[in-house]
Design a protein around this nucleic acid. Structure first.
Lengths: 104, 104
DNA sequence: TTGACATGCAGGCATATACCTGCACAATAG
DNA sequence: CTATTGTGCAGGTATATGCCTGCATGTCAA
């Protein structure tokens, strides 16, 4: 997994919206997705390409439509590799910060 | 929490590195952090400002140094609000995708 | 006070990003 | 076949981003 691509892909609200839309209904075409997206079709295409490059979305051409499927695995990996360690220390760090502040 | 600021703050590798450094040792000064960062001090300052705006880092001026403290709460909130629902459906979606692909 | 050190602030530059228009191609319906 | 529909591809532009230099400010030690 390319961690950086995943984070950069998630950095844009339009792309998070696309993932939300695919989460609501998996396997949508470009046209379907655009109906919810107040932007030109070509812009949505570029966003979907970025999501695909990050392996967050897979697409399959079926006849003349291209269907898009969400892939939650990279998000899970980001959580595993990156969020969890912070989570683990969350309360103790908060306590530490509080102590430091009180020591001013 | 401003979800977009958190995602955008996390999108840059230098900023993730800063969070890693603060995770290793909390309460470091700008100078200390720069020693690990192959960039000008002013660039690091800008990254830290973005992290502060996202509430991922808090800083306190203590004499002539400014100390920086990590705040894992927004990361946790991103996980709660955004990652968890994908996590919840992860296996079932994978199964669904597999089924669709086999149907080609 | 004065020199040294850590940081703050202003601005400038190159690249990346997000958006668009215009045209081309492929598949299906009639 | 032909028109329609859905998508692919090539660019062009405005803004955002990340990096820098130069100078100003503030704090501590001697």
């Amino acid at each position: 997994m390319d961690e950086d691509k995943v984070f950069k892909a998630l950095a844009d609200p339009s792309r998070r919206r696309l993932l939300d839309l695919l989460f609501e209904q998996n396997g949508q075409s470009l046209g379907q997705l655009c109906e919810h997206l107040d932007m030109a079709r070509q812009s949505a295409t570029q966003h979907l390409e970025i999501l695909e490059a990050a392996n967050l979305v897979s697409s399959i051409k079926q006849g003349r439509v291209r269907l898009h499927y969400i892939n939650p695995v990279p998000i899970h990996e980001v959580y595993e590799r990156w969020v969890r360690k912070f989570e683990r220390e969350r309360l103790s760090l908060l306590h530490e910060l509080k102590t430091q502040l009180e020591g001013e």
